[in-house]
């Protein structure tokens, strides 16, 4: 009964979608807004990667909201799981020596790779979110490989808050310098070099560290006592 009912709903939805989609051809020429970004992006923001210039400059306020949502998730997660009573720890087979050594060996390299990704966000694909996720996966590996070594939750929390505050402070500096929140007030530099694009690398460093700490914190909270 339930299945038939949901199938009927889905068929109605599919009809609406078909009517809607048939008006939007696939692979059509770009839009006015998108063309403007491609033409003026380097000149106005200094970033070679146009997606980065949109994420951090043209639509930087969205990114602030996005960072807030991640912060919110880790806060909410901590609040919901905070008062979980300590269960008796199940018997975990300790990881073998090879695994532990490999994890220890790989961990700094993963961190370095993540840092590279978010430092070069304005030049190559990638950025703060991707880099942060890679850093967090490094922490995940560490938890799997050396489960007895834990990083203190409070240090994650501190990095999260500081990252968010750094983002807002950069935005407010732009406000005092140029009259607009998140204004790109630093010199744009020569395109396609590491030290270019004004505030973009600074914000990406803050976001990268923040996202890395947040995701690692989420994994840490979830994995606790399991």
């Amino acid at each position: 009964m339930r299945k038939i009912f949901s199938l009927i709903i889905l068929i109605i939805l599919a009809l609406g979608v078909y009517i809607c989609i048939s008006e939007i051809p696939f692979g059509k020429p770009g839009t006015a807004v998108g063309n403007y970004y491609i033409e003026k992006g380097i000149e106005e923001t200094g970033a070679v990667n146009i997606v980065t210039s949109i994420v951090l400059n043209y639509r930087g306020f969205d990114t602030l909201g996005e960072v807030t949502i991640l912060f919110l998730a880790s806060l909410g997660l901590g609040a919901i799981l905070a008062t979980v009573q300590n269960k008796t720890r199940g018997v975990i087979t300790p990881p073998s020596l090879i695994l532990t050594t490999a994890c220890r060996f790989l961990f700094p390299f993963i961190l370095m790779f993540g840092a590279y990704i978010f430092l070069h966000g304005h030049l190559t694909p990638g950025g703060g979110f991707q880099g942060g996720a890679i850093i967090a996966s490094g922490f995940l590996l560490r938890y799997l490989g050396c489960p007895q070594k834990r990083i203190r939750q409070s240090s994650f929390v501190a990095i999260e808050s500081l990252g968010g505050i750094a983002f807002i402070i950069i935005g407010l500096l732009g406000f005092t310098a140029g009259g607009f929140f998140l204004f790109n007030f630093l010199p744009k530099g020569v395109a396609n070099t590491l030290l270019s694009a004004g505030i973009i690398p600074l914000i990406y460093i803050a976001i990268g560290l923040k996202v890395g700490a947040e995701m690692a914190g989420i994994i840490d909270t979830l994995i606790e006592e399991s």
Binding site: R59, F61, D62, G65, E66, T68, I69, L72, A73, L75, G76, A79, I80, L81, A82, T83, V84
Partner: peptide, 23 residues
């Protein structure tokens, strides 16, 4: 409109967390 969506998500997720935060 997309910014509205982002803030809408902030509102929604914080409501979920507040409803369940006592555990």
């Amino acid at each position: 409109i997309f910014n509205l969506f982002v803030f809408y998500e902030i509102l929604c997720i914080s409501s979920y967390a507040l409803v369940g935060y006592t555990g």
